[in-house]
Amino acid sequence: MLDKLKQLDHEWFLAINGYHSSFWDPIMIAISDRWFWIPFYALLVAFLIFRFRRQSILMFLAVALSLIAADGISSRFIKPYFARLRPCHDASLSETINIVAGCGGKFGFLSSHAANTFAIAMLFALMLPERYRYFKIFAFVWAIVISYSRVYLGVHFPGDVLGGAVLGILLGFIFGLWFRKLSVRYPYFAPRP
């Protein structure tokens, strides 16, 4: 069973990673680069402060804690424990892989990019009032696109990003519930519906 899953993971990886073009390569590099998103993050912070004022304090705390948990668990515990090589470090794939822009660390399971972005997407899905449903959808699309870029660039298997997505959604759900509980307990910090 595990061998079949590993084979399927490799096949999906080769299919996604094999689709390259001079048009998509720089786009995927930018999407995968954390610094590329700084203007978006700055606008998001400004919007949350402007729209939610004091309520944004609790939101930022929940975001910070979920990112610390997602990044810490994925990078410091899961990657060293499973020690699964990234595709770009796997000698058996060296002749078939397209490494577009470097490789990153030695181990890839699970993807920290996926864990972090899905944690944030899930967190916003639970924190924001219902009228922000389009932003909530955008947050999940954003997480999916970033995760896809990691496979496209040859630094993660699809299983790595799926594992990261599961961890991120779980942590986003936990911190989202924590946020909701504190919002009820301390309504001063709760966002208005």
Rank of each mutant, 00 (worst) to 15 (best):
I49F: 14
L162D: 04
A115Q: 02
S75Q: 00
I27N: 06
Y134W: 15
V155Y: 04
H20S: 11
A69N: 10
S149V: 03
S147D: 02
W142Q: 04
L170R: 07
Y132V: 06
P80R: 09
I16V: 14
H89R: 09
W142T: 07
Y148T: 02
I16P: 06
L61N: 00
L177C: 13
L44D: 01
F50L: 13
D33R: 02
L93C: 01
G172R: 02
G164T: 07
I29R: 08
G108K: 03
M127H: 01
G102S: 13
A114E: 01
C103M: 00
A165H: 03
I73K: 08
A70R: 00
W12V: 02
P87T: 08
R51E: 14
G172E: 04
I16L: 13
R131P: 08
Y19G: 08
F135V: 11
I38E: 07
I49L: 15
L126M: 13
V155H: 02
I31V: 11
P187R: 05
R54S: 12
S74E: 05
W35M: 11
I169P: 07
I146Q: 03
C103S: 03
F77I: 15
R76Y: 15
R51G: 06
R53V: 11
R53S: 13
L67Q: 08
F47M: 00
W142N: 05
F109H: 02
L65S: 11
P87I: 05
D3P: 10
H113A: 02
Q7V: 10
T117R: 01
F23R: 10
I97Q: 04
R86M: 09
S111T: 00
P39T: 12
I146C: 05
R192H: 14
G108W: 03
S94L: 13
N17W: 05
L153Q: 01
V155Q: 00
S147P: 07
